[in-house]
Design a protein around this nucleic acid. Structure first.
Length: 485
RNA sequence: GGCUCCAUGGUCAAGCGGUUAAGACGUCGCCCUCUCAAGGCGAAAUCAGGGGUUCGAUUCCCCUUGGAGCUGCCA
């Protein structure tokens, strides 16, 4: 039975790189009929951010990545929060001390800093812990530990040989032991470090496949030494390349890069984000590019994972979002767009459903909607230059003429349905031997004040209503007359 | 500095010894059109460099270059 886990530390928002790791981890489990587990790695109490755990739960649910086991859903392997498991790590560490794979260390941080400084001044090489406390007599070490003297437990990495592991993506990875440091396994506060907790918990929770970022790639050989010391079978490792902001920077919340929550708030739709992120570092191997979450589960395969970092490209996300919005039913669009319409049109009665038919295929991201429709609430200031359009064969003079013709025609319409307005203006053009555009363009400019608008003159006229349309046309006529004089 | 890893257009990427080196986003044309979108058609644009191996390298090996990660009582 495949068991995978997503193991974030609660230090803030779920960023997009984390979301992608969670997604792949979820997909792999589901694809193989396995279980997806959430574990919170909060052993660094200092970095923990208030509310971050809840945010992780929330984001994962919003993303549709439902975990089978986790802190807030339970499971047979709990607890799923490391600080709630704090007492079970030490006995394992002691087992390693017993076998010689680890040892207690009483060096203080200050002592270490001193020795490090001294060592680095001499040789240009990097400081490694000097195994000072490894050579303490066992009885003395034991006595000092029992007396309550603060200490840590360090991994005893061999001085010679190599450590290695097999990665499902990167293949054989090995490192010379003499370049590896004796990492702290149990901190002075009694809590394990990531280095240790991840090994213990993955084993105890029966994790079969570990998917995590490549930042762990170079330390994994060392973790394998731990597995060997315990005589445990290692999980299958699948390290995932990072998501980058640009060629040399990782995506990071700190730098103002959006989190999953941010994107949702900006008006990106959930499925578009998931779809896009899935394809950042993974390819189905064929030319499909639209995937629902269940379709991703079906299509997911380790073979499609990329080893190279992928740059997060907002333009493609925007495109995906636009596609997803265009494909959603109109009813759903109306529902999602309404708060954004309200933002620009609050107070003005408006046929939102009709407006939605215009905006539906023109919306890239919802937060761009208010600016696109604001002209409906209030006629913007505009320059009469925009009455001039070469292709439409219009200029201020033609426009003034068209508006003078159109104004009374529209004024006497008994109803102001879009179709009616259109018929009226088309007839008007034909009767006066004008090109359609020579009427439509000036009218649209007069009633919108913008060179480009979602929808055409007749649609905007309908949305505005007869009175407001006529009012704006009068304003246009005045403006053009003033310019002519 | 040491160690580990990575390298196909601007971006995501297919390719797994012989291809006209897919596809998508973006860009640029043209068409359609009452503007803008959408849609249709088309174009430009990639194997980082140098050595090998091979009849033949984008593909395998080495070096160089570039980039990333690790080198914490952070994860």
């Amino acid at each position: 039975m495949v068991r995978t886990r997503f193991a974030p530390s609660p230090t803030g928002y779920l960023h997009l790189g984390g979301l992608r790791t969670a997604l792949y981890t979820y997909l792999f489990a589901k694809k193989n009929g396995g279980r997806f587990i959430l574990r919170i790695e909060d052993t660094d109490q200092e970095r923990e951010v208030e509310g971050a755990v809840e945010l992780i739960y929330k984001s994962l649910r919003q993303a549709g990545l439902l975990y089978d086991e986790g802190p807030d859903v339970g499971g047979e392997y709990g607890p799923y929060i490391q600080t709630q498991r704090k007492d079970l790590y030490l006995p394992y560490a002691l087992r390693l001390v017993e076998s010689g794979a680890a040892y207690p260390c009483f060096c203080t941080k200050e002592q270490l800093a001193q020795r490090r400084e001294a060592a680095e001044a001499e040789m240009q090489g990097q400081w490694k812990y000097d195994k000072h406390c490894l050579h303490l007599p066992k009885e003395e070490a034991l006595r000092r530990m029992q007396s309550g003297e603060p200490c840590v437990i360090r991994q005893n990495v061999p001085l010679t040989g190599t450590a290695s592991f097999e990665d499902a993506l990167y293949g054989h990875v090995e490192a010379p032991c003499d370049t590896l440091d004796d990492n702290v396994l149990i901190k002075a506060d009694g809590l394990p470090t990531y280095n240790f907790a991840n090994v213990i918990d993955d084993h105890l929770m029966g994790i079969t496949h570990v998917m995590r970022g490549t930042e762990y790639l170079s330390s994994t050989p060392k973790y394998n030494l731990l597995y060997q010391a315990f005589g445990w079978e290692t999980p299958t490792y699948i390290h995932l390349s990072p998501v980058m902001k640009d060629a040399s920077r990782k995506l990071s919340k700190r730098y103002g890069d959006p989190s999953f929550e941010d994107l949702l708030a900006q008006g990106y739709v959930r499925d578009a984000i998931i779809n896009f992120i899935a394809l950042l570092g993974w390819s189905p191997g064929d030319e499909r590019e639209f995937f629902s979450l269940p379709e991703l589960v079906e299509a997911f395969d380790l073979k499609g994972l990329s080893k190279a970092p992928a740059i997060f490209n907002t333009e493609k996300l925007v495109w995906f979002n636009h596609e997803y919005i265009s494909r959603m039913p109109l009813d759903q669009y109306v529902e999602m767009a309404t708060p954004w319409f309200d933002k620009a049109l609050a107070g003005k009665p408006m046929d939102y459903r009709f407006l939605s038919t215009l905006m539906h295929t023109r919306t890239e991201v919802f937060d761009r909607v208010p600016d696109m429709v604001r002209f409906l609430a209030e006629l913007p200031e505009y320059d009469i230059d925009i009455y001039t359009h070469k292709k439409m064969k219009t200029d201020p003079e033609v426009s003034l003429n068209a508006l003078r013709l159109a104004r009374p025609a529209l004024a006497q319409l008994p109803d102001f349905a879009e179709e009616t307005v259109k018929e009226c203006l088309m007839d008007l053009a034909a009767q006066n031997e004008l090109k359609t555009g020579q009427v439509m363009w000036p009218v649209r400019i007069a009633i919108s004040g913008q060179a480009s608008t979602p929808g055409g003159a007749t649609e905007i006229a309908y949305l505005l209503g007869q009175a407001e349309t006529l009012r704006r046309m009068d304003l246009g006529i005045q403006k053009l007359e003033a310019a002519q004089a």
